[in-house]
Design a protein around this nucleic acid. Sequence first.
DNA 1: TTACTAAGTGTCAATTTTACACTATATGCG
DNA 2: CGCATATAGTGTAAAATTGACACTTAGTAA
Lengths: 222, 222
Amino acid sequence: MTYTYEYPHPAVTTDVAVFTLREQQLQLLLICRRHDPHKGKWALPGGFLEIDEDLEECAKRELKEETGVSDLYLEQLFTLGRPNRDPRERVISVTYYALAPANKLTVNAGSDAAEADWFPLSQLPELAFDHAEIIRRAQERLAAKALYSTIAFQLMPETFTLSELQSVYEILRNESLDKRNFRKWILSLNQLEEVGGKQRNGNHRPAKIYRALNPNHVEIIR
Amino acid sequence: MTYTYEYPHPAVTTDVAVFTLREQQLQLLLICRRHDPHKGKWALPGGFLEIDEDLEECAKRELKEETGVSDLYLEQLFTLGRPNRDPRERVISVTYYALAPANKLTVNAGSDAAEADWFPLSQLPELAFDHAEIIRRAQERLAAKALYSTIAFQLMPETFTLSELQSVYEILRNESLDKRNFRKWILSLNQLEEVGGKQRNGNHRPAKIYRALNPNHVEIIR
DNA sequence: TTACTAAGTGTCAATTTTACACTATATGCG
DNA sequence: CGCATATAGTGTAAAATTGACACTTAGTAA
């Protein structure tokens, strides 16, 4: 079956940069391409838009198909469509970024990808297409948004300690923060609630456990 | 001539929300559609992407063709592609917003539009497609960006007084500002330079004239 | 019981933001 | 020519916010 148009049409894809925190680092989910072009290179999960699905649906579907990952915070990033960015045909790519709670995701390679794996941002392999630019801009956006919204909560598991949360902010902002000032600030947002007490790394005082009041909504603050 | 693909392809368009300041109001450039669908309704300037032009080029070309307007600050907004948003075929729209210096633009209707005109944001006519949503989001972005960048300068003519600039900020932020505090703040950014002295509305002291130091670049501040 | 280690907590200084009112200098008119 | 008018232009002090800083608490483990 073929599809015919009076004027030439570009193909439309979505690509998703999925971030998570592992080993105290921001890591990114990549798939290894099973087909040409760029066969064998690592790339962002993504693929062609189906003709009757919404853009965001497409991003979620491709992510699920290629990596087994679903139910993430997802936000549109920007759209990129330089002629010749894909050797096959004109491709417009609508990019998204997504955040996954720390260590909560099992990744499974799907049909279109030979392999899916996490990479620390500081040790990315060579990337297919212009995916390096997409990643750079996604990281910029994430760092910026951490300053004026509760987006960082999307990287947390359901419950967490304030020290763990502080560590996430330190990684996103790439600087160390004062413990007392951080706690004053984060609690003053009224976006957290206490739930119980637990112990962590052995021989010391256990930390109180908190949860986000609105775990499914990113609040704009200040 | 026709174009054939193995899989269905959506059409891709760009749409541009052009803002300017006229009569102490934020106004928006609309065209009246000459063809169906929505013939006779007002819409954002925009149109189909040509197969070998970049997205931003397309936005600029359509703007020029339909309204005669060119050389504006242009920034991508977001991409929208709900199935059935256009009755003809699946259409993905990459939206932009643009800013025009006050009262400096002559608008000329082009071939695809019966008419092009400015509308105060508070008095928009009924709009074609989902263009009302695009406008709402463009205005949100503009208001937000005025707080942390020099984007407002893009609404100014080459030279202007501080009172005029303050008035622009007051319109964008929809609140009145203290004159002394505004001047302290805007001058502390080191983004303006003085050029000479002029008089405005007759019988009073004339204001100093300023110009943006980097009129072609939007600086991120604070 | 003691040593260890991260959790948890408050105050003061520095900086930033906000509130606020008068003088200066041009035009236009009598 | 001088006086009325109207916007341009200017500084300071209080309030709010941000940033720096160190010790006590409460568990675990040996």
